Simulated scan of single mutants.
Amino acid sequence: MRAATHGRSTEAEIRDILETAVRPPERVKLGSLLASIAREAELTDAEAELFDQLRDKTPADPMRFE
């Protein structure tokens, strides 16, 4: 009945239910959290540049399932 109410298939409704369960809208997003910490720390441009220089910029290797 819920799927029909939302105008989608049962499978699409189940996917939506699962998506909502594992990714609730009120969750804290890591990027937002880190940005807020940086704002609270009141880093200077020079300090931010230093962090950028120290950051490991090598691309990550993709996972292998062998």
Rank of each mutant, 00 (worst) to 15 (best):
M1P: 06
R2N: 09
R2A: 14
A3E: 01
A3W: 06
A3N: 04
A4T: 07
H6D: 05
H6E: 08
H6P: 00
G7C: 01
G7W: 00
G7S: 00
G7H: 00
S9A: 04
T10E: 15
T10D: 15
E11W: 02
E11L: 06
A12P: 00
A12E: 14
A12L: 12
E13D: 11
E13T: 03
I14P: 00
I14M: 10
I14S: 07
I14T: 09
I14Q: 10
R15F: 03
D16W: 03
D16P: 00
L18D: 03
E19P: 00
E19L: 14
E19T: 15
E19F: 08
T20K: 09
T20D: 08
A21P: 00
A21I: 05
A21L: 05
V22H: 12
R23S: 13
P25F: 06
E26Q: 14
E26V: 10
R27P: 01
V28I: 09
K29G: 04
K29P: 00
L30R: 07
G31K: 13
G31T: 11
G31Y: 12
G31A: 15
S32T: 15
S32K: 12
L33T: 11
L34A: 12
L34M: 15
A35L: 11
S36E: 15
I37D: 03
I37Q: 07
A38R: 15
A38M: 12
R39H: 08
R39Q: 14
E40N: 08
E40S: 10
E40R: 10
A41V: 04
A41F: 05
E42L: 09
E42G: 04
E42A: 15
L43R: 00
L43H: 02
T44C: 01
T44E: 06
T44S: 15
T44N: 05
A46H: 02
A48E: 07
A48F: 05
L50W: 06
L50S: 07
L50R: 08
D52F: 04
D52N: 03
Q53N: 07
L54M: 13
L54H: 07
L54G: 02
L54K: 13
K57E: 03
K57G: 09
K57V: 12
T58P: 00
T58N: 11
T58G: 05
T58F: 02
P59K: 05
P59G: 02
A60K: 10
A60W: 00
A60N: 08
P62C: 01
P62M: 06
R64P: 00
R64H: 08
R64C: 03
F65D: 06
